[in-house]
Simulated assay, not measured.
Amino acid sequence: MTQESGEVWEKFAVALADMARDLLAQDSVKATLDRIVDHASVLINGCDEAGILTVRRGEVSALAATSDVVRRADRIQQDLREGPCFDAVAEREQLYTIQDLRKPHAKWSHFAPELRKLGMGSMMGFLLFTEDDALGALNVYSRTPNMFDETAQQAGWILASHAAVAFSASRTHQQLAHALETRHEIGEAMGILMERHGLSEENAFSVLKKASQDHNIKLRDIARKVCETGDRPA
């Protein structure tokens, strides 16, 4: 490693540490994802645009994007059901690249020309994953062909690894907060039923649960209605 190369990686490491702190400071999953793509466009050499998508049961969902161009690229992958990021999630591959979108591409023969029409010259797709879960894929785009060399690929992979951890932590935090909020509402609704309708704790919960099952409505929503009206569920 040359001195110049070492200095570049040292600066990248410092910037990556700043990114990690920034991601942990976000107050929602959406804000975390938005910051991930913003950091990718700055920290990965040659990156002009970035986005995050996920594939569930063959359906592509765009989670974050730096521009409408990225959103259109995501829709193209959805419509054609092909593309490096689609494959990164579907096949659990950690990295896919298209170095030159001007040339025919055997694997993504339909997707590559459409992306070129959007003004893109090359792209990379990184799987966002942790030990327990595959979360989605980070898309990195450049308007210039052959922009993403080995250094850019390594930087993108490192950034994606840190981003996946922050994404997973943010999602877990949100799920926990949601669960605690749900528990609080259910407890409050049970208290209302016990006080106003003379039910025991066990019977109050049974009433909420049965109403949820009979009407196919989430237990939390039943509890919220009881909190708002004070009425016993039908």
Results as ranks from 00 to 15, higher is better:
Ser5Lys: 03
Gly6Ser: 09
Glu7Arg: 12
Val8Glu: 15
Trp9Met: 13
Glu10Arg: 15
Ala15Pro: 05
Ala15Ile: 09
Leu16Asp: 08
Ala20Met: 08
Ala20Leu: 02
Ala20Thr: 14
Arg21Ala: 08
Leu24Trp: 00
Gln26Met: 15
Asp27Lys: 11
Val29Asp: 07
Lys30Leu: 12
Lys30Ile: 09
Lys30Arg: 14
Lys30Tyr: 12
Lys30Asp: 14
Asp34Met: 02
Asp34Tyr: 00
Arg35Val: 04
Ile36Lys: 15
Ile36Asn: 14
Val37Cys: 04
Val37Pro: 00
Val37His: 04
Val42Asp: 15
Asn45Pro: 04
Asp48Ala: 08
Gly51Ala: 14
Ile52Asn: 02
Ile52Val: 12
Arg57His: 15
Glu59Met: 04
Ala62Val: 03
Ala62His: 02
Ala62Ser: 11
Val69Asn: 11
Val69Asp: 15
Val70Trp: 10
Arg71Ser: 12
Arg72Cys: 02
Ala73His: 12
Ala73Lys: 11
Ala73Thr: 10
Gln78Arg: 07
Gln78Asp: 11
Asp79Lys: 05
Arg81Tyr: 02
Gly83Glu: 00
Cys85Arg: 04
Cys85Ala: 14
Ala88His: 12
Glu93Thr: 11
Glu93Cys: 05
Gln94Ala: 13
Thr97Asn: 05
Ile98Ser: 06
Asp100Ala: 07
Leu101Trp: 02
Lys103Leu: 14
Lys103Met: 13
His105Pro: 00
His105Cys: 03
His105Ala: 03
Trp108Ile: 03
His110Pro: 00
Ala112Gly: 04
Glu114Asp: 12
Met120Lys: 04
Ser122Phe: 00
Met124Val: 08
Met124Arg: 15
Phe126Gly: 10
Leu127Trp: 05
Leu128Ser: 01
Phe129Arg: 14
Thr130Lys: 06
Asp133Tyr: 11
Gly136Met: 10
Gly136Cys: 12
Val140Leu: 04
Arg143Asp: 07
Arg143Phe: 06
Pro145His: 13
Pro145Met: 12
Asn146Arg: 15
Met147Pro: 01
Asp149Lys: 13
Asp149Asn: 14
Thr151Cys: 01
Thr151Asp: 06
Gln153Glu: 14
Gln154Leu: 09
Gly156Gln: 13
Ile158Thr: 11
Ile158Pro: 06
Leu159Asp: 08
Ala160Val: 11
Ala163Lys: 01
Ala164Met: 10
Val165Arg: 15
Ala169Asp: 10
Gln174Cys: 06
Gln175Phe: 00
Gln175His: 04
Ala177Asn: 09
His178Thr: 08
Thr182Ile: 01
Arg183Leu: 01
Arg183Ala: 09
His184Ser: 00
Gly187Cys: 06
Ala189Cys: 04
Met194Asn: 05
Glu195Ala: 15
His197Ile: 06
His197Pro: 01
Gly198Ala: 05
Glu201Asp: 10
Ala204Cys: 05
Lys210Glu: 12
Ala211Arg: 08
Ala211Tyr: 05
Ser212Val: 02
Ser212Thr: 07
Ser212Ile: 02
Ser212Lys: 07
His215Val: 00
Asn216His: 10
Ile222Ser: 01
Lys225Cys: 03
Val226Arg: 01
Glu228Cys: 03
Thr229Lys: 05
Gly230Thr: 08
Asp231Leu: 08
